[in-house]
Simulated scan of single mutants.
Amino acid sequence: MARCLATGLQRLGHGACRCPQDMWTGRWPGEAECAEFGWMLGPGLPDLNRLLTTATWDPVAYRWTRPTAKGDTR
């Protein structure tokens, strides 16, 4: 599953894109961020639905970022 580095979503089927090529890391896209944020459904099972509906894609860092509450400086 190749990821579009401009949107963070699946690259297949979103038309012509000039974003850089994503490299396969051996992990499902978003899995590392889910583990980092503690968004797991069970051992080895990332909550990718929560990631896609809650987190924001950072097209500069090529990763999902956790939303912050007002005044949260973490």
Rank of each mutant, 00 (worst) to 15 (best):
P59E: 09
E36D: 11
T68M: 13
P20D: 10
T68I: 06
P29T: 02
P46K: 07
G8K: 00
E31R: 14
P20G: 10
P29E: 03
A2C: 13
P46T: 01
G30V: 06
R50K: 08
G71N: 07
R74P: 00
P59N: 10
G71F: 01
P67H: 09
G42H: 05
W24E: 11
T73K: 12
T65I: 08
W28E: 13
V60W: 01
W24N: 11
T56Q: 14
W24S: 13
L5K: 07
K70P: 10
A55W: 02
K70D: 13
D22P: 08
T56K: 15
E31W: 14
C17W: 03
V60A: 12
G38H: 04
L9H: 02
P46C: 07
G71V: 00
R18V: 03
W57Q: 05
A69V: 07
A2N: 13
D72C: 12
P46A: 09
R50W: 05
M23L: 15
R11T: 01
Q21W: 05
E36H: 06
L41F: 06
W39P: 01
D72N: 08
R66A: 11
M40R: 05
A35R: 14
L5I: 04
P43M: 09
R66H: 07
D72S: 13
W57N: 05
A61V: 01
D47T: 00
R27Y: 11
Q10K: 09
P67D: 09
C17F: 00
E33N: 08
K70S: 08
P43E: 12
E31Q: 15
L12A: 15
A2L: 12
A55F: 01
L9M: 12
E33W: 01
Y62S: 10
R11F: 04
T25Q: 05
G44D: 10
G42E: 08
A69D: 12
L41C: 06
T54S: 15
L48E: 07
E31C: 14
R74Y: 00
P59G: 07
P67M: 02
M1N: 13
C19H: 10
C34H: 01
M1W: 04
G38Q: 02
T7H: 05
C4A: 08
T25N: 05
M1G: 14
C34Y: 02
A6Y: 08
C17L: 03
L45H: 08
E31P: 08
C19T: 10
F37P: 00
R11S: 06
T53K: 11
A69Y: 07
C4Y: 03
A61G: 06
A35T: 05
R50P: 03
T65R: 15
A16S: 13
T56E: 09
Q10N: 15
R18E: 11
P43R: 11
A55I: 01
A32H: 10
P20N: 05
A61R: 13
L12R: 14
G30K: 06
G8I: 00
L9R: 12
V60I: 07
P59F: 04
A69I: 03
L12V: 12
F37V: 00
T25I: 02
M1H: 13
A55H: 03
G26W: 03
M1L: 13
E33L: 06
C4G: 07
T54D: 09
C19Y: 00
A16C: 14
A6F: 00
D22A: 14
W28K: 12
C34S: 05
R66E: 09
E36Y: 04
R50M: 05
W24P: 14
R18N: 15
G42R: 10
G42P: 02
T53P: 00
